[in-house]
Design a protein around this nucleic acid. Structure first.
Length: 310
DNA sequence: GGATGGGGAAATGAGTGTAC
DNA sequence: GTACACTCATTTCCCCATCC
């Protein structure tokens, strides 16, 4: 009975920021003294409450309040475990939590038999994510900039050194163990893709509420870039397998009856170098039919590599 | 024996009055 | 007008009695 009341009380206070013992007593038809005892029990269980005495006093819930208890089925619990497992491969996440600690907390609260099942499954199931060492200490700032529509100047490390860019990030996403953030470049007047771990410094330049592409639309690539070029690539069976794993190419693959594929899309002229680097990874499993500029770029890069080994 | 309630003490802060 | 002291309302906290 007491446990049931404690759960009800936890749900009640999680929905509030501030309340008095008298309010709770009236709500639950209990004495004020009993409410105080229950609240003390919840505090001891880790619910972040504190009491303020005096006039206008009462109980307050701290910002890092806990979520109400959630109930997962066994299969949901296993799925959550593997999701946490994936996140631990990222050295940085945009939340102030210790991912390993969260994973341990979740794991230790699973029933013993489910833990045993997980121990067996772990040897046979892996969601492959590369282990990366690149930390992105400004990741949270980039996320907040995107959410609050902030124009910022970033000091960004590229192959030509550290340079300043005035941009408006539109969001962040994780891929292959790294964090990326597309951002509107005021100089180039288009969205460019940056890596979060290469940002050395970020300064706020104020808010900019002018409408820009959303992260979802940008990822879906359902926009026509400026100075667009038609892209046509023929890929082998192995090429289909490799290209499917790439977010820039994957959505545009049409698979033929024999297992080979065709990629038809559009790219910006400024994206030629970026696209060529992706296609180099596909090697002889992909042949660019058009644009000819991309063919020339690939030929040049391939020649440079050949020259290195001759 | 654990859960609950009652009464009073202690703490706190807003409001008010008074001296300068 | 300002600083200080006091009052009062409101809340938590502690101890003890009662109930199931």
């Amino acid at each position: 009975m007491k446990t049931k009341k404690l759960f009800e009380l936890m749900f009640y206070i999680n929905a509030k920021r501030y309340f008095t013992a008298r309010e709770v007593a009236e709500e639950f038809d209990m004495s004020v003294r009993t409410v105080q005892r229950y609240l003390l029990d919840l505090q001891e269980l880790g619910v972040p409450l504190y009491a303020e005495k005096g006039k206008y006093g009462g109980y307050r819930v701290l910002n890092n309040r806990v979520l109400p208890p959630l109930f997962f089925s066994e299969e949901e619990g296993k799925m959550m475990y593997f999701l946490l497992e994936m996140i631990t491969h990222y050295p940085t996440i945009p939340f102030q939590v210790d991912t390993q600690r969260v994973k341990t907390k979740f794991y230790t609260h699973l029933p013993a038999d489910v833990r045993n099942q997980l121990e067996q499954i772990k040897d046979f199931v892996v969601f492959l994510t590369p282990n990366r060492s690149e930390e992105a200490p400004l990741l949270k700032d980039l996320l907040l900039s995107a959410m609050k529509h902030k124009k910022v100047v970033i000091q960004y490390e590229s192959k030509t050194g550290i340079k300043g860019h005035i941009v408006k990030p539109i969001g962040i996403y994780a891929h292959e163990g790294l964090w990326y953030f597309p951002a509107y470049s005021y100089k180039k007047e288009k969205i460019l893709l940056f890596r979060a771990d290469r940002v050395k410094k970020i300064e706020n330049l104020g808010e900019d509420f002018t409408e820009s592409l959303t992260l979802k639309k940008w990822l879906a690539q359902d926009y026509v870039p400026t100075k667009a070029l038609l892209l046509h690539i023929e890929i082998t069976k192995e090429g289909v397998r490799l290209a499917s794993a790439n977010p820039s190419l994957g959505p545009h693959i049409t698979i033929n009856n024999d297992g080979t594929g065709t990629i038809k899309s559009v790219i910006g002229r400024d994206d030629l170098d970026f696209t060529a680097n992706i296609l180099l990874n596909l090697g002889r499993y992909a042949e660019v039919i058009e644009p000819k500029e991309l063919r020339e770029s690939l030929k040049k890069k391939a020649t440079e590599i050949v020259n290195m080994y001759t």
